[in-house]
């Protein structure tokens, strides 16, 4: 198996696509891969030779793809943007579809930006651009597994347990009927803001995102909220 074929396999680039060129920058831990459609490769060449672009081909675009080991991978292609091929990306999105799906799934379970950027070695602006585009396009159908109960560590520290995202306590808190004894400014503002954002919006995935954020508020502030956290949940459950 030659190197290009190896990377085609590693990056899950299927037929009729192939790796046309590879560049590996060891110092910057960066991998650049040029992919082309086999049936269209001649067309791309001819288009360039003739000074025009055939249908389906455009200027070269670069999308950030899933990392390969410790290397950041960038896919270059003259093919038109695609919302289907995992190794290509959409117009205006800095990531390939595979990377965008991975980032979206982490955002959907409430992972904070800093954690995503650090873990995947991503630029904050790119992640923000993806999220902004998702909101603009209402493409909020990314489903993601539940974060699971990440609170074992918290609850073991003598703090009251923070309910899982599926607990009805979050919906009741968002409904706002039993929050009168919440005195903390940041929580009041967060609740009001979330209620405003969800008003007249029938989007279950957006609602889940907001519940994840609300839950993350309690996780982040668990120690500071300790004197009243249990009371807040008890009030809402009544």
């Amino acid at each position: 198996m030659n190197t290009r074929e190896l990377y085609r396999q590693l990056l899950a680039i299927g037929d009729p696509w192939r790796v046309r060129r590879l560049e590996i920058n060891v110092r910057d831990k960066r991998l650049d891969i040029w992919v082309e459609h086999v049936a269209g490769s001649t067309g791309g060449f001819l288009s360039r030779a003739l000074g025009k672009k055939s249908a389906g081909f455009d200027r070269e675009r670069v999308w950030r793809h899933l990392n390969v080991g410790r290397y950041r991978a960038f896919v270059h292609s003259e093919a038109a943007p695609s919302g289907v091929e995992p190794f290509l990306g959409e117009e205006g999105i800095p990531f390939t579809n595979a990377m965008a799906a991975r980032v979206s799934s982490l955002l959907a379970v409430g992972t904070c930006y800093r954690a995503i950027c650090t873990a995947m070695d991503l630029d904050f602006e790119d992640v923000w651009q993806l999220k902004a585009a998702r909101y603009r396009g209402a493409d909020t159908n990314d489903t993601a597994p539940d974060a699971g109960n990440e609170l074992v560590a918290w609850t073991s520290g003598g703090l009251p347990p923070i309910p899982d995202v599926s607990d009805p306590v979050w919906e009741r808190m968002l409904a706002g009927d039993h929050n009168s004894r919440i005195k903390i400014l940041s929580l009041r503002l967060l609740l009001s803001q979330t209620q405003i954002q969800l008003r007249n919006v029938d989007d279950p995935s957006l609602r889940q995102q907001k519940i994840h954020k609300l839950r993350r508020y309690f996780i982040n502030n668990a120690r500071a909220l300790r004197p009243e956290m249990q009371r807040i949940f008890d009030d809402v459950r009544v």
Binding site: Y113, L189, L190, Q193, K213, N220, N221
Partner: peptide, 11 residues
């Protein structure tokens, strides 16, 4: 600002 990432989660 109300829509900024992590707003209300940090003082």
């Amino acid at each position: 600002a109300p829509g900024f990432e992590d707003m209300f989660l940090k003082p």
